[in-house]
Design a protein around this nucleic acid. Structure first.
Lengths: 343, 343
DNA sequence: TTTATTTCTTTACGCGCGTAAAATTTAGAA
DNA sequence: TTCTAAATTTTACGCGCGTAAAGAAATAAA
């Protein structure tokens, strides 16, 4: 990597004394050449500064080493975190992640996929927006490019799905809340874009019913990705009206909870589990910020690491198989209760 | 974009009745051909589904349309937000942003640059880690690729720098704090990686001295990017020891302030400006979450939009000039005071 | 209409690398 | 040592497009 610049593989072949086709094999897979020649090549690589022209390589290869990673919103720390974890796994396996965020816009989501298409990626890991997504176009894309969905499922689209078991995780926290105090109401968006929201709603309802309580839904108006703002506004309303059956609110996700906590604080309500507390609040996701809310947020963590690892693994398997799997697998990981001070 | 798939430009030439060299010109710049032929091509594009092979194009063009955007940490909402804004501006001008985060690691920062190099980008917008960065390697990169630094400056590296005027912004909030209450101590990291931290420290000291107060530095130990955690730990210490000269703390950035607020809450301190408050806390950056802290955080906003727009503009200018500028310009934008409840 | 100018077509080469086929060398086993 | 399988070299072509040069066509100006 130090010495003279080499302009192409031909030139590197002459200075290294290795034929160009062998070099080509080497750069595709260093283990595909004999150990001794591999050493010779690597020695030459120390002396001369050369790396294959990415564009020439990808023009001729059937498949590139690119793997697209598309998330709904990179500005959301939840997705930033999971995207980062996925990235690490992809790099480990010798592929090249291409990270794209859709900023909550279905149009940009499709634009991102079209953009990826021109990169001829070996595969794509897609966390779709959900209800707002252009399902038909996503499906068409999946027909051309091996795609694994994660976080948010869309029925029958993609090779596989990897996500969280909302039934289990919501059941977990509903159980906990009921066991340690009054049964929770459920704060959510009236028309959420993310399909997990629907699953969590249903999971909440059935968990409550199983415990013999009647569910109460608090449905916030509002669209878009400003969840804290939506949670805050609805929180102000809830605090003002004070007509909830109990003192406990479970939020569909942590970002709503963060808004709700902010509203409760502003209204002078004491949130927590101890004596003299007016309100218990719990969330879902273990958002990176939930450790620093006031009070710290009791929530359910999704298994980021497992989801990232599994979805990358499933996609790579699919890529190496070079043919669609016969069935669409769905893998769900269980949530873990994170007990903090808010409930 | 509807009908038959076309496999290459040759084929598209025959079906559209336009010669390939003319098509090539068109795809490079639609305005470089006569209006009437442009219409014919665009009409054909409606009928046939064709787009030039990205890899073949980039192999032959001197410069690609790629522009790298490298930030220290995509998981930090501050950088996620500014990166997103920059992205939008780049797309607007017909270039193609390639977003990379360094996860706080100098090694990954260099890896990102090396990665970009193989993409032969027209230019790069780099927010360096700062002190931890491998300055020599970044400088070497800047010699080969037109690079504009933003957010964090490194002396003499890159074509230009665009950032915030820390002297002005810190002066602003120190003035405000002194005017409306007791002069602030300054909470920061003892050995910050980001050069803005040093500028803010100095700005704090001189602002205090100008107002006739003696500055007090609270220097938190700790490395890395877990600023909330560091702020929390130091906050717990501060709250326990209670040996500050005043009731007011200005934090070097909002993330430290968020940690501090969390510690204050846990200790039962009332933070704010009203009667009966024990502590005033202010931050810097107008972090996306600072609107939802408890209490909401008084801070100084950086002009994200202006920084994004200007840095993209400067880079594009440099790219179109096709030669290094004769002098390295530094553009600083002023901060704006965001008054909320914490101070 | 003639002329000058711009634009387009034709023809041809090159970019850097993947990859196939045949000939040759090498390494390991018999 | 001899044989055999594996690895390498030689040779050659193709990928899809940029781009240069020369001639033809279309447009604008005279």
């Amino acid at each position: 990597m130090a010495g003279t610049k080499i302009k192409n593989m031909e030139e590197f072949a002459t200075v290294s004394g290795i034929s160009r086709p062998t070099l080509s094999k080497f750069f595709n897979d260093p283990n595909s050449v004999r150990a001794s020649t591999r050493e010779r090549i690597e020695a030459a690589l120390e002396q001369y500064d050369y790396q294959p022209n990415l564009y020439a390589v990808n023009q001729n290869r059937r498949l590139t080493k690119n793997i697209g990673v598309v998330v709904p919103n990179l500005a959301d720390p939840f997705f930033a975190k999971i995207a980062r974890t996925i990235e690490a796994h992809i790099i480990e396996t010798g592929f090249r992640p291409v990270l794209l965020g859709s900023h909550g816009s279905p149009i940009m989501e499709i634009a991102n996929l079209e953009n990826l298409r021109s990169l001829k990626p070996a595969g794509v890991l897609l966390a779709p927006l959900g209800r707002a997504s252009d399902h038909a176009k996503i499906e068409a894309f999946c027909q051309d490019v091996p795609t694994v969905l994660f976080d948010a499922n869309i029925d029958k689209i993609g090779e596989a799905f990897v996500g969280s078991n909302n039934g289990q995780s919501v059941g977990l926290i509903v159980d906990y809340l009921c066991r340690t105090g009054e049964p929770p109401s459920f704060l959510e968006m009236r028309s959420p874009t993310n399909p997990n929201a629907f699953k969590r709603r249903n999971a909440y309802i059935s968990a409550m019913e199983k415990l013999g309580h009647s569910p109460t839904l608090i449905q916030a108006e509002g669209e878009g990705w400003e969840f804290e703002e939506i949670g805050f506004r609805e929180g102000m309303r809830v605090v003002r009206d004070r007509n909830l059956p109990t003192n406990t609110i479970l939020c569909s996700n942590d970002r709503l909870a963060i808004g709700l906590l902010s509203a409760a604080f502003e209204a002078g309500l004491r949130v927590g589990i101890g004596e003299g507390c007016d309100l218990r609040v719990a969330g879902h996701d273990d958002h990176p910020f939930s450790r620093y809310t006031c009070p710290t947020l009791t929530t359910v963590s999704q298994d980021y690491e497992a989801i990232a690892k599994k979805s990358a693994a499933v996609l790579l398997e699919r890529i190496e198989a070079e043919k669609p799997a016969d069935s669409r697998r769905e893998t769900l990981f269980e949530g873990r209760l994170i007990m903090r001070s808010s409930a």
